[in-house]
Design a protein around this nucleic acid. Structure first.
Lengths: 217, 217
DNA sequence: CGGTTAATTGAACGCATTCAACACGAGTGG
DNA sequence: CCACTCGTGTTGAATGCGTTCAATTAACCG
């Protein structure tokens, strides 16, 4: 069963949780195309998703148009764990994506199932940890450090020599709390210092791991 | 019973949760003096706290000395809900404070108690929401907006005409992702625009609510 | 191929930081 | 009662990082 999980979770961070299994069992397979919304901010909280293939991002836009990307979700990740009656972020497919969808009510029907409750709590805890890390990044790091940390994060998701950027520069910028120009400049700068090398716009490899990780710290 | 809660929770946001009641029943009353640690970052996660009186802050410091304040906790709030085997933030009493402490194991002994599980999940969700709001603030707002939002938050905690700043300028700065000088300058600026007025260093009142809330948005 | 969007680069600006000096208040002791 | 000190907060001037606005280049797709 760890094998089955490893297939759709390249990072293998998530143990085969009861929640994942419940979604697998109760949920429906569903496909979203690029930029399609899983749910919008303000929507009633009703569904729970598990990414099977592709990437999902959560975003929040303010009245005056500023946008913050909350997180990126990859195969195996759970999306839609927000609290409250309505979503505070929206979720969109970054790439074409395949997900498992389940109604919260269906999960709730298993309330009392200690293992499942525990799994939901664990998933929520992971989400909290994610938000806290993001918070630290936004509060403490400068542009170089933000971008470096982001690349390290991407590299940890992937395997092999080269790594993929599933998201646009704009998504990166909105995630990091920078402008697209600053992201771009920082990337060329890192490349100029031979810390990383871009093989194409969306694919890179790391030339100097120690330097990159020192920056990301 | 709502009355009993209202007494030690000025905001009255928390319903009388099963978790709060469990801590009340199982926990020991405990006093901390100013700047004393409830727990340190890296400490084993073992205890759960509920603030009875005073204010608690969580902080994280990086190897190179940068500090981020995670949140401020007031009467009625639960502290120590982090996941993982060890704390990623430390918690200190901001003022002299009184808290209820309970071992996590004691709470866990009630696993299966659906109501309690639910309450822990709710509290964790609130914590997540807090972190997400903080994230948005750090990523999207400029100095004026950050400070304004912070003052609005403080005002919502209090009642009456004047509100108290329990924390130092440094704490504010580290919470907002600014320097102490910028916080100070912004406060004088807001005062110059007659948006707020400081009666003393740690006490203020709002002169123009619409202006303040427009900034905080 | 053009046509369109995404990304990079350049130059000028501005906000927040940095470093330094000064003000204020509380506590202490002459 | 005043002088002194120490911690905390405010103010000033200069710097710099990231933004803004504009122009250019590169990638993508019919």
């Amino acid at each position: 069963m760890t094998l089955a999980l490893a297939i759709d979770d390249p990072r293998q961070v998530c143990p085969p949780s009861a929640l994942a299994r419940a979604i697998e069992k109760l949920g429906v397979r569903c496909r979203f195309c690029r930029d399609e919304e899983l749910y919008g901010q303000g929507d009633e909280v009703d569904l729970l998703f598990r990414v099977v293939r592709g990437v999902v991002r959560t975003t929040r836009v303010t009245v005056d148009g500023r946008r913050q990307v909350g997180a990126f979700y990859y195969a195996g990740d759970i999306v839609g764990l927000e609290t409250g009656p309505q979503h505070r972020f929206s979720a969109e497919a970054l790439t074409e994506a395949e997900v498992r969808v389940v109604r919260r009510a269906a999960v709730r029907a298993f309330a009392g199932d200690t293992e499942l409750d525990r799994a939901v709590l664990d998933a929520t805890h992971r989400e909290l940890e994610r938000a806290q890390d993001h918070m630290l990044m936004l509060g403490l790091k400068n542009a170089r450090e933000k971008v470096a940390a982001f690349l390290v994060g991407l590299a940890q998701l992937g395997a092999g020599e080269t790594f993929e950027l599933a998201m646009s520069r704009q998504d990166m910028a909105d995630y990091l709390g920078l402008t697209i120009e600053t992201v771009s400049r920082t990337l060329t700068q890192l490349q100029g210092d031979s810390v990383v090398e871009f093989l194409s716009l969306r694919r890179f490899q790391v030339r100097k791991w120690p330097a990159l990780e020192a920056l990301a710290a």
